[in-house]
Design a protein around this nucleic acid. Structure first.
Lengths: 350, 350
DNA sequence: AGCGAATTTTGAACCGGTACAAAGACGGAT
DNA sequence: ATCCGTCTTTGTACCGGTTCAAAATTCGCT
């Protein structure tokens, strides 16, 4: 290109980047040559190497999931819609990293992006290469300490609100369906008073939620150790993995027949409870109150509409993306949650 | 890095790319130096410049839309889930291009990808730079001729099936709600027999659909020129743009009170017809049959469940992505559609 | 030990730009 | 006409790899 126009490549670069530095006639000549050759600006690979930005934000799907979850899971869709909004504003593309396990690590190492959003603080190995490329990154739903950007919700407060709502309605016999963050595993039942893992189960996020419940129960003289808990892998309500959640709900019903209220700590889990209750002719909320966590659109459309702890999924996406684009010192953002009281909760029958 | 290990950079490159070419002891030495320096493989920017792949597939949202539509519009979600599946298999990332208008063009020019999927054959200007970078690309829902990869559905056949279904049920008085592919414009009414644009309205895709209907109508002695048609911008049923679709439906009802069957050529348009019918106490399907186009999940859940022409959205995504990854000569793929007969159609009342 | 063949390692070119200092051109003042 | 300051243009050094032919080393044999 430079040769074709009979000028140096520095001049070509100037014509496209600082046109005002080039005398009009020369500029015109270069522009004409460009048109003739069908050259319409720098090859991004070259500019990139000499210090340019990629104008892309890398997104790493949560845990063991591949890229497909971005379009299938309701929470991810909302979250990514928030990210998209901010990317749009900054003129940046969204780069969704594919692969699971080793392949995911490789994809992250080779991703041509200006920063990353990790959807969970998984293998630290994934983050190391990113840090070494000195790319900024944010971790979602985890606290990586003061040196790491993170965005999460007030899980403990959300659980507290949910439990308080049920306690206020008069409930005293609870059951909990929580999240097993491991695809393919069968549900795990924790019997009241049993040994085995209790509060130290699962991810920090679930632990916070259980703590919140425990706090409220304590105020009315109950111990969470007397509450039956089932852990079950959630997946998406659209897919076949819903069967797993249903099995978890069934296990819970079998082992906690006396419960008047179920708290489901995941958005698939709550729908499973509702479905399983219907199958067993348990009327919600007359015979059983159900509170969910997360608030994808379908919960409001469920039958009955679910009382649930809504998290600001879209806002989480916006905040995370802004952290990357705005730069600056590491931030830890905790966003508030809201209890959406709908029709799946009522006072217990006497 | 090369210097730190006391070897040439060519050797470092070999250690990471063809380890078997390097004698074990030297290899070990390099690997140790790498570990010490925290070097875990080539910087992707460098490899890219010297002929490497980006391992990313660029996706350009349709027409005037930004990147957000990828997560909000039901059709796009399905489509992209299909793309994601194939990307995952090839270990490639999905690179969603942001921006509208000029910004979109710039984003495309600078996108670090190995190929593109265009979601509509819009401004040819967008495609030119891509072709000049000699990147492969596919155009969705359009026929760009034998030299351009394209994937679309058999729109004409779909419309034919829908119309035939209604004709078989005994309908003879139709109304059509079609797609105005221009955000923000008010609905346009085409009165029966009126002058002004008829079949030459809208996008080629809509034209095909109208042709399909016309063909079937002709077999029972009707002309599509006697059918009232409203064009209206669709948007997504989730968003405020739904109001526009509703206005279009209202316009149609006002001007085609005698119709016993409405064919809606878009997935937002059909829901709007249903909503507007309910508002006017028109019972579907008793007083009015409605057939839709496209088949996002919510149509099956609509009240009543909509009879609709389902297109294989996910498969479209898979096919498009495969075309890019597999390479080879340009292909034009036309996928079949299926009429899903549900409960929004019935014989006309006498 | 000496020699040719096979294997390893490396120098140099190239990928396509950007940035900056130095060189060149130009205009005005003396 | 000469000199100087200003504005343009360009040479050159990176950016971080890959590749390939040539140089260097090793090895097996005689």
């Amino acid at each position: 290109m430079a040769a074709a126009a009979g000028v140096s490549k520095a001049t070509v670069s100037n014509v496209f980047n600082w046109p005002e530095r080039v005398r009009p006639d020369l500029r015109k000549r270069v522009e004409e040559a460009a048109r003739r050759l069908g050259y319409s600006g720098a090859d991004p690979r070259g500019s990139l190497l000499s210090g340019g930005k990629t104008n892309a934000l890398g997104i790493v799907p949560p845990g063991a999931f591949g890229i497909g979850i971005a379009f299938t899971h309701p929470y991810m869709r909302d979250f990514l819609a928030g990210v998209a909004e901010v990317c749009e504003a900054y003129g940046a593309a969204m780069h969704l990293v594919s692969g699971v396990g080793d392949k995911k690590a490789r994809s992250i190492r080779n991703a041509l992006v200006d920063g990353f959003i990790f959807n969970s603080l998984e293998e630290v190995g994934l983050i190391e290469p990113v840090r070494r490329r000195s790319l900024p990154f944010v971790v979602m739903d985890a606290d990586g300490g003061p040196l790491i950007n993170s965005v999460r919700i007030d899980d403990r407060d959300g659980a507290r609100q949910a439990a308080q709502h049920l306690v206020d309605l008069g409930h005293r016999r609870f059951a909990i369906l929580t999240v097993l963050r491991q695809s393919g595993s069968p549900p795990i039942l924790h019997r009241p008073g049993g040994e085995g893992p209790r509060l130290d189960v699962g991810y920090p996020m679930d632990w916070e939620r259980l703590c919140g419940i425990a706090e409220v129960l304590a105020t009315v003289g109950l111990s969470i150790n007397d509450v039956p808990i089932v852990e079950v892998f959630g997946g998406s309500a659209d897919t076949t993995t819903f069967g797993g959640a249903l099995a978890g709900a069934a296990l819970l019903f079998d082992n906690a027949p006396e419960a008047t209220a179920v708290i489901a700590l995941g958005d698939t889990q709550d729908l499973a409870v509702l479905a399983e209750a219907r199958r067993r002719n348990i009327a919600v909320p007359r015979d059983l109150s159900v509170v969910g966590f997360d608030d994808p659109p379908q919960l409001a459309l469920a039958d009955p509409p679910l009382t649930t702890v809504a998290q600001p999924s879209i806002e989480k996406g916006r905040v995370a993306a802004r952290i990357i684009f705005e730069g600056g010192p590491a931030r830890q953002v905790v966003l508030p949650v809201t209890l959406m009281i709908r029709n799946s909760t009522a006072p217990p029958r006497h």
